[in-house]
Computed example of a mutant assay.
Amino acid sequence: MNVYVIAEAGVNHNGDINLAKKLIDVAKEAGADAIKFQTFISEKVVSRHAPKAEYQNKNTSTKESQLEMVKKLELSFDKFVELSEYCRKKDIEFLSTAFDFDSIDFLNSLEMKRWKIPSGDITNLPYLIKIAKLGKPVILSTGMSTMEDIRAAVSILKENGSGEITVLHCTTEYPTPYDDVNLKAMNTIQIEFDVPVGYSDHTLGIEVPIAAVAMGATVIEKHFTLDRNMEGPDHKASLEPNELKAMVNAIRNVEVAIGSGEKKPAESEKKNMAIARKSIIAKRNISKGERFTEENLTVKRPGNGISPMKWFEVIGRVALRDFEEDELIEI
């Protein structure tokens, strides 16, 4: 199965549908399988008393509240209809994370193929039940979570009719320090819950998601932007278009390179076996009737003669003809 790559546009459109369409173009050009946005009614998600995260304060005006910041990044449902149709036209899967019940109902009307549950809602029981009852495949992010949190969420989803559940390892910090990534936790999740796993990445660069693919990730999610210097909470920890394309290309190369696991000569290397391997060869001139010994035999390239693995089967035999120095031995 190919790795499913989600290009996470999130709110990096800054509330501008034209920028959102450019992000769709970039995701398609990069070779991503899907582009994902965030759909919400600000007042139903953030209270007016909610503080901003540290990284949000760094990347936006410190004078505004979280609600004021989020309100500027909100797109209307009509705009998402337009974006969904644009994705269909561009032949890339449209995804969006719903952050409130009205947004869930709206996105369900767009007939999304699967649902992405954000890390912040892994402990939101009513939300989990509502998503599960849609009966579609679910991708569950697990930033800030313990194994107990994941166990409870997966159980709730299963009990309420969810489709296939893929669990993404994730660290909710923007950008994520490398020593907080803990990629091995992805494998722990896979073993514990026997589900497909993946990785939602917030590190700088592309090394970590590529490593996650090598470790068995079936889904990779990565934030991207048109320009990291734009104002907004997520731009600084996002890939620019050329980096997104490089990441997708590297993932495609790695998923092919992982192979079947069966150890055998590859078709491309078989032609080199006779050149790179060695054969039993006359160390000096050998006369007919002379016994082969360690003094008159040696091992050299090419490898199209008797294998050195048969060394002791040859030692002690009698030469059936004359051999010149460096000639392949025959018995």
Results as ranks from 00 to 15, higher is better:
Ala53Gln: 13
Pro241Cys: 03
Val208Pro: 00
Leu183Lys: 01
Ala276Ile: 15
His49Leu: 14
Met230Trp: 14
Arg277Trp: 01
Val256Asn: 14
Leu157Met: 04
Arg321Cys: 05
Asp100Asn: 11
Asp16Cys: 09
Thr39Gln: 07
Tyr178Ala: 02
Thr146Trp: 03
Ile258Val: 15
Val254Lys: 01
Pro126Cys: 06
Ile92Asn: 05
Phe323Ser: 01
Val26Asp: 10
Gly261Gln: 10
Arg228Pro: 08
Ser103Ile: 07
Cys170Met: 00
Ser42Glu: 13
Ala7Tyr: 05
Glu294Asp: 15
Gln190Gly: 15
Ile41Tyr: 14
Gly15Trp: 03
Asn249Asp: 15
Arg114Gln: 13
Leu128Ile: 04
Lys130Ile: 02
Arg284Glu: 02
Leu23Ser: 08
Glu68Arg: 10
Pro233Met: 02
Asn304Pro: 02
Val5Ala: 06
Lys136Val: 03
Asp322His: 02
Glu269Ile: 14
Asp105Ile: 12
Glu243Ala: 04
Gln38Trp: 07
Ile280Ser: 05
Asp78His: 11
Ser268Tyr: 14
Val26Ser: 12
Lys283Phe: 01
Ser268Gly: 10
Ala50Phe: 13
Phe40Ala: 09
Val138Phe: 04
Ile331Asn: 05
Glu231Arg: 13
Asp234Trp: 04
Arg284Val: 04
Ile131Ala: 03
Glu330Cys: 11
Ala257Glu: 15
Val299Ser: 10
Leu125Asp: 11
Lys36Ala: 03
Glu74Val: 10
Glu269Ala: 13
Leu157Ser: 00
Pro265His: 09
Asn272Ser: 14
Met309Cys: 12
Glu93Trp: 01
Gly143Asn: 06
Ala250Leu: 09
Asp179Tyr: 00
Ile191Gln: 15
Asn229Ala: 11
Arg321Gln: 08
Lys270Pro: 03
Leu183Trp: 00
Phe106Asp: 09
Asn57Leu: 15
Gly305Ala: 04
Lys21His: 06
Ile191Thr: 12
Asn12Gly: 10
Met144Thr: 15
Gly10Leu: 10
Ser307Met: 04
Glu8His: 07
Arg48Ser: 14
Val3Glu: 01
Asp322Asn: 11
Trp311Arg: 06
Gly303His: 00
Lys270Val: 10
His202Val: 10
Lys90His: 08
Ile206Cys: 01
Ser65Tyr: 01
Thr293Pro: 08
Arg284Lys: 13
Val138Ile: 15
Glu29Leu: 14
Lys28Trp: 12
Asp149Asn: 15
Phe292Trp: 00
Gly316Glu: 07
Thr97Glu: 08
Ile122Arg: 04
Gly10Phe: 07
Pro209Ser: 07
Val213His: 07
Thr172Val: 14
Thr171Phe: 12
Val248Gly: 06
Met230Arg: 13
Ala50Arg: 12
Ala250Trp: 09
Val26Trp: 00
Glu192Phe: 11
Ser119Ile: 07
His169Met: 08
Leu204Cys: 10
Ile191Lys: 15
Pro233Asn: 07
Gly161Ala: 11
Glu164Ala: 11
Met230Asn: 12
Tyr55Ala: 06
Ala185Asn: 12
Leu226Ser: 09
Lys245Ile: 07
Met215Asp: 09
Glu324Ile: 00
Cys87Val: 05
Asp227Arg: 03
Ala212Thr: 08
Ala246Trp: 02
Val248Leu: 02
Val181Asn: 03
Leu297Thr: 02
His223Gln: 05
Ser109Ile: 06
Thr171Asp: 09
Asn18Thr: 11
Glu295Arg: 04
Ile275Cys: 08
